[in-house]
Structures are given as structure tokens and as C-alpha cells.
Design a protein around this nucleic acid. Structure first.
Length: 690
RNA sequence: GCCACCGUAGCUCAGUGGUAGAGCACACCCUUGGUAAGGGUGAGGUCGUGGGUUCAAUCCCCAUUGGUGGCUCCA
């Protein structure tokens, strides 16, 4: 006799097992009609799930009462169900397609499929697929679940001959399932069905709005050695307006894309002839980078760092010792050989294979375009005898590194082949690790705070015990990982521990941000390393007059300027705070009669170190404002004859519709100068009304 | 690297088997105008690159290069 507790605390009693749908109906016809699924003791289930014991029950509807956003559980059900409908539609249109796996995601869903050889789907087929889906939805067939004991279910799958579904079932067994479940879209045995753990909406007709979005290739189980699958993405919502709102939101987000804004605002350029993933910083972007560098540079001096400069290449031996060459060869540009070596090899008729082997064996020397800065800094540390008294030694450099990323992975400024890290390596005693980590983390926090970035997460990257890609002994790894955990805890923000995310030489604390299309990027990073000091035999003389090995901390609070500024452009949607804005103030003259005063104001601004320009074109003031607005300039100063007489400027602040009125030019200059000096995240000038 | 799509003027994009067009931007002229586009004139492209089909290719086919979305990878 189930007693059912509803979310509002009220209790309903039944004298027989009931389904969640029946409970909904007992509450009200409207609710029953709106119900898409149920949450039983916190578990999302079908509406048709039988309830036999006392439970807490919530009915899932498209929108929770009073909520403005669609219900996340409802979207999950809709998308999961829509994935089935899409799979059925595609199988109708493309006979022989095998289904693999089709989960709902945060904003959409996909279905991985194997198309018969020679047959492929193209984006031109989307309309046909959508039309077929619309038919299935119009038929409003119920999602009907049926379960089978494991052995029987496996036998069924074997007879159907899909290795993918069989594998899914086997993984379900590993996860502890004792039964297998299918969902038929309609009648079991008669209509389309799919091995699936559910849950689903009651019937296909409940999928209010959907869209097939894109095509991609994927690997079975994410393993590039296994089958190459076709992944079809789609999304679904309860209503058309919600879908439209989502699509509009996606369009809006694209306008903030750093690649779009980078072009519009002339921040950077990528040129085919220079090379993929190689950023050319144009003057506007260079200003932002330089300002950030000045900002962090001031902090570094405060924190006792020493600036160093080192070259962008180094001999192969250096990277063999560090482990980069043997462990990460695939991610580096191939080594550079000297002329004489090339001639000698050519005379010997050396093949590429020979060359690779002989380089590995150390027979042939060459230079590597550096993938990291640490080996050079290590050599600076090792260039002189070190006493415990001078530790920690903190060497910093805005060091450019080159990595050979796969062509399909490169894009914009967030994933590039050459980038500059705000790098530093701290060589310290073991007892200094905690404090040094604190110092590094405080730098990262300062950056995020100054720029008003709050939407980031913290990841502690640990080694994957099953992988061979890490160097060093496990004992040191354990110590280093514990140091990272402790440091992350002290940050006072939530963090996740993620095995397999460590650097090859040590664990790390990463600060991760999302871009406008939802992709995550690692920005700042702090890493603890016992391994490289050992590989290079680094030393210091301790207070006991014995030789000791220092511990290294690698840290880059921005990560790389390329990636960071890519994210920063999106964070500000191109509207940078005054201290970062490439053009901080533009003076707009009303007519030729106020040109002299305009030039005077410009001179005052420049004298104060403000990046300012003067628009004395024959355009009307409306046109000048419109043009200036497109450059997202923080302040526009309109100067006319009235202003000239009063030695004043009429201030417009970016994002404020009406002008702020006139103020003495000298006062504006003083205000903007202090706003810039403070690195204020918001526009604060000209707020005083005359 | 894999799959799909895309590449036309500085930018955003239209277009056609018979060697191309718009808006913005740019240059010049008129206008001297007080807060989100005043008017006119003009210049600017071997339609990503290389092959092929064709009497004829920017358009069709192949290759290549670059971009976009995803997969994989990411020290």
C-alpha cells in the first residue's frame, strides 16, 4: 500500500501499486496532461513506472511551476526520446545503419551510428530526416518499455548481430544491471525499438520542437583504433518558442566569439601563408597583451621574481634529458638539423626512418623548437652553485613555445601552435612548497578578480595510474599530488580531482573557463614537480652543508596570452575596461570651428598617457558617434564651440545611451588617468553632472 | 589525423556553365552639422590554389590548402 510523499510535503495513499502517471492524474487532469516523467526518490523515471512501496515522488513537467527556464529533467527526457526518434528516422532513410549510443547532453543530444560502407549522411539530408522525425512525432506512438533477464536479452542482441549494442549491454552488466531494457516506439515486436535504460517521455507526440544540428565523426568508445562512427547532433525542447530562443541565444553567443570580434576590432590576424595556429598580434591586440604583461610584471617584481630571457630553441639533448623529446615527440615540430648534418645524411642516403632512429639513439644532434620553457630555466638555475639561503629562486619569462597540434584541433586563439606563456619556475626547498603554491594561486586569483572573471572552475590534475606517459617515481608523485590537493583546498573554492589530467612530470592545479560555445579551456596553471630536478640533477647546499635536491613549481597564471586573451575578448564581448582598451578615448569634433579645441584636448589626453584619437572628419556628429561605437571605445568626448569656450568636453561613456553632459577637460583627463591607473574593471569617468 | 560543411572586394554576404554584384569601410567633392549613419562621385575582385571535363568553368569533377562544428589529442 504505497504512501506517496509529494514535493510540497503532502502525502497520498493508495491501496494498490500505482504508476507515477496515475498519481499525477489523481492530483489533477492538467498535471497528468503536462507530465513528461517522474522523479521517484530522486531518480528520474518513466511516467509508467510502477510504484509498489512508499516513495517520494515528483512529477516532471516541461516547466516547473513558476519557473522561467525549462526544467532540466524534462529536457533530458525530451532529448533522450528525440534521439530515438531521430535514430528511427535515419534508419528508415538509410537502411543498414547500425546504432551505437545516443545520450542527451546539456544543450542537445547526439546519436553515434555506423553507416554502411560507401553510404554517408550529409547536412543536405537534414531536412529529410527532420521530415521523417515529424511524421513519427505526429503518429504520437507511446514509448513502451520492456525488460528481459540478462541471459535472454544477451541472446536477443547476439541474434540481432550488433556488436555495439551487445557491448552496451555488457557494460550495463559491469555496472551492476541484472536486466536489460528496451524501448519500443509503439508496440514491442512491431514498431522500432532500441536497447535503452530510459527513461523517456510517454509518447513521441510530446516532443514539441526539435532540430537536427550537425554531423561529426567519432570513434567507437573514443578510441581511434576502433570503428569510425558518424555522430549526428540534434536538440529538442518542449515548445517551438523555447527552441527558437535557444537558437537565437546561440546566434548571439557567436557575436561574442573572439574570432569574430578579433577581426572586427582588429585584435589579431591569422595568415594562411604564415601558418596554421600562428597568431599575428596586430597593434590593437598587442596593446591588450602588453597591458596584461605590465600588470602581471608589477606583481612579479613585488613577489620577488627574477626576469630572464632565453631562446626559442635548444639542443635535442636538453629535451632528451627533460623527457620532452622521448615522451612528447608527436606534439612537437620535428627537430631542426644543421647544414653539415643534412649534407652528411644526404650523402649516406639516409631515409627518414633511419633519421628518426638515429636521433632517438643520440647519433645525430639537432635543435628543437621548444615545447616548454622549463629546460632553459633549469639550466639557468644550474648555472651556478645554490645555497638554501637564496631559495626559493623564482625565474620568470614571457616565453614563447611551439607545439605541433593536430590540424583539426587548431582554432582561433584558444588552440594554437605557437604561444607565449607568462611562465615562471620556482626552485624551492620541500618545506617551502606550500607557501610558494599560495603565492602562485594568489596571483591567479588577483588576475581573475581584477578582470571580474568569476565563472571558472578549478581542476586538480592527477596522474592516471594506468598510463605510461608519466615520468618519475610514484612516491614523489604522491607527495606532489598531496601538495596540490592541499593548495587547492586552501583556495576556498570547489575543485575537482581529475586523474589523467596531470602534466607528464607532475600534477597541477588548473583554472578552467568556458568559451561562448561552451568549450572548456585551461587557462592558469600551477604545477608541482619533483621529477625534472631529479632528471637534471639540480642541487643546493643545505644548512647541514649537504647537497639537496630542490623541488620545482611551474606556474603560468594566465596560461598563455593567446588563449587567455581569446577568452578575455569573449568575457568582455570586446568591450574592454579602459586600462585594456586599445583606444581609450576618442575626441569627436562637431565642426571645423571646434577643431582647434579638439586637438588641444587630444594633446592633453596624450600627455596624460591616454590612448586617444581625434575624429575631425567632415562627418556629422551622429555619424562619428555611430562609427566610434562600433569600436567599443570606453569614452567619446564630443567637443563643439560651446565646449571650446568653456574648456570643456561632453562625455559619452560606452554602454550609456544618453550623453553624460559637459565637464572641464582637465577634470576628465584626471579622472580617466586615475581610472586607468587603478585598472578599474568598470567605466567610472564623467559621472559628475555639471 | 578522422567526418561534415564552407572559401566571391578590406569586412559582411548575394549570384551565374558565356570572365561578377550589394551594403559597410576606403578616396575625393558638396554639406559646418550638438549626441547611434547628411548627400554625391570614384577606386577596388585573374571568384583560396593546382589539375581535369567543356567550344566556354567563379559555377561541374579530382586534388590541395585554409576556415567552421564535432571526434581524438592537448606537456
Amino acid at each position: 500500500m504505497p504512501r506517496i510523499t509529494l514535493p510540497d510535503g503532502s502525502v497520498k495513499e493508495f491501496d494498490r501499486p500505482v504508476t507515477a502517471g496515475e498519481v499525477a492524474a489523481s492530483i489533477g487532469a492538467g498535471l497528468a496532461k503536462a507530465a513528461l516523467g517522474a522523479k521517484i526518490d530522486g531518480q528520474l523515471t518513466d511516467l509508467s513506472t510502477r510504484i509498489e512501496k512508499d516513495v517520494k515522488l515528483g512529477i516532471v513537467t516541461a516547466k516547473a511551476k513558476g519557473a522561467t527556464a525549462p526544467d532540466a529533467d524534462a529536457l533530458y527526457l525530451l532529448r533522450h526520446s528525440c534521439a530515438h526518434v531521430m535514430a528511427e528516422a535515419i534508419q528508415r532513410l538509410f537502411p543498414g545503419v547500425q546504432l551505437v549510443y545516443g545520450p542527451p547532453l546539456e544543450n542537445n543530444f547526439y546519436y553515434d551510428m555506423l553507416f554502411p560502407t560507401g553510404k554517408a549522411m550529409s547536412t543536405e539530408d537534414f531536412a529529410k530526416v527532420e521530415a521523417e522525425m515529424a511524421k513519427i512525432i505526429a503518429e504520437d506512438r507511446p514509448f513502451t518499455r520492456y525488460d528481459m533477464p540478462m541471459s535472454e536479452g544477451l541472446a536477443k542482441l547476439k541474434s540481432e548481430g550488433s556488436k555495439f549494442k551487445l557491448d552496451n549491454a555488457e557494460r550495463a552488466i559491469e555496472a551492476g544491471s541484472t536486466e536489460l531494457s528496451w524501448y519500443a516506439t509503439g508496440q514491442p515486436g512491431k514498431d522500432w525499438e532500441d536497447l535503452c535504460r530510459g527513461p523517456h517521455v510517454p509518447s513521441t507526440g510530446r516532443i514539441g520542437a526539435f532540430k537536427v544540428l550537425s554531423l561529426a565523426s567519432s570513434y567507437w568508445k573514443g578510441d581511434e583504433k576502433l570503428d569510425r562512427l558518424t555522430r549526428v547532433y540534434g536538440t529538442a525542447f518542449a515548445t517551438k518558442p523555447e527552441l527558437d530562443a535557444y537558437m537565437t541565444q546561440v546566434e548571439e553567443a557567436k557575436k561574442r566569439d573572439h574570432r569574430i570580434l578579433g577581426k572586427q576590432l582588429r585584435l589579431f590576424h591569422i595568415d594562411e601563408m604564415v601558418g596554421q595556429g600562428l597568431i599575428l598580434w596586430t597593434p590593437n591586440g598587442a596593446v591588450i597583451r602588453q597591458e596584461l604583461q605590465n600588470f602581471i610584471g608589477e606583481e612579479l617584481r613585488r613577489q620577488g621574481y627574477h626576469q630572464v630571457f632565453t631562446p626559442n630553441i635548444g639542443k635535442l639533448d636538453l629535451y632528451k634529458t627533460s623527457g620532452h623529446f622521448p615522451y612528447y615527440q608527436d606534439s612537437q615540430y620535428p627537430p631542426i638539423l644543421e647544414h653539415d648534418t643534412m649534407k652528411m645524411l644526404a650523402n649516406e642516403g639516409c631515409t627518414c626512418g633511419d633519421l628518426a632512429n638515429r636521433m632517438k639513439a643520440g647519433d645525430i644532434d639537432g635543435y628543437l623548437l621548444r615545447p616548454m620553457n622549463c629546460p632553459h630555466h633549469i639550466k639557468i638555475y644550474a648555472s651556478q652553485q645554490r645555497s638554501y639561503r637564496e631559495l626559493p629562486v623564482r625565474l620568470c619569462e614571457f616565453g614563447t613555445v611551439y607545439r605541433w597540434e593536430q590540424s583539426g584541433e587548431i582554432g582561433g586563439m584558444t588552440r594554437v601552435r605557437g604561444f607565449t606563456q607568462d611562465d615562471a619556475h620556482l626552485f624551492c626547498r620541500e618545506d617551502q612548497i606550500a607557501e610558494e603554491l599560495q603565492g602562485c594561486l594568489s596571483l591567479v586569483k588577483l588576475i581573475f578578480k581584477t578582470l571580474g572573471m568569476t565563472d571558472y572552475r578549478v581542476r586538480v590534475g592527477l596522474r592516471d595510474p594506468d598510463s605510461a606517459k608519466y615520468v618519475g617515481d610514484p612516491g614523489n608523485w604522491d607527495k606532489a599530488e598531496q601538495a596540490c590537493r592541499d593548495a587547492a583546498k586552501s583556495l576556498g573554492v570547489p575543485f575537482s580531482e581529475e586523474p589523467g589530467e596531470a602534466a607528464f612530470y607532475g600534477p597541477k592545479i588548473d583554472f578552467v573557463m568556458k568559451d561562448v560555445i561552451g568549450r572548456s579551456w585551461q587557462l592558469g596553471t600551477v604545477q608541482v614537480d619533483y621529477n625534472l630536478p631529479k632528471r637534471f640533477g639540480l642541487e643546493y647546499i643545505g644548512s647541514d652543508n649537504q647537497v639537496h635536491q630542490p623541488v620545482m613549481i611551474h606556474r603560468a597564471p594566465f596560461g598563455s596570452f593567446e588563449r587567455f586573451i581569446g577568452c578575455l575578448i569573449e568575457h568582455f564581448a570586446g568591450a574592454f575596461p579602459t586600462w585594456l582598451a586599445p583606444e581609450q578615448v576618442r575626441v569627436l569634433t562637431i565642426s571645423e570651428k571646434s577643431e582647434a579645441w579638439g586637438r588641444e584636448v587630444l594633446a592633453m589626453l596624450k600627455a596624460a598617457g591616454v590612448r586617444a584619437t581625434l575624429d575631425e572628419s567632415p562627418e556629422r556628429i551622429q555619424g562619428k558617434i555611430k562609427a566610434a561605437t562600433e569600436w567599443k571605445i570606453p569614452y567619446l568626448l564630443v567637443v563643439g564651440e560651446r565646449d571650446a569656450e568653456a574648456k570643456a568636453v561632453s562625455v559619452r561613456a560606452r554602454g550609456v545611451q544618453e550623453n553624460l553632459g559637459a565637464m572641464p577637460a582637465a577634470e576628465f583627463v584626471a579622472q580617466v588617468k586615475s581610472e586607468i591607473a587603478e585598472r578599474s574593471a568598470t567605466l567610472a569617468c564623467g559621472t559628475r553632472q555639471p
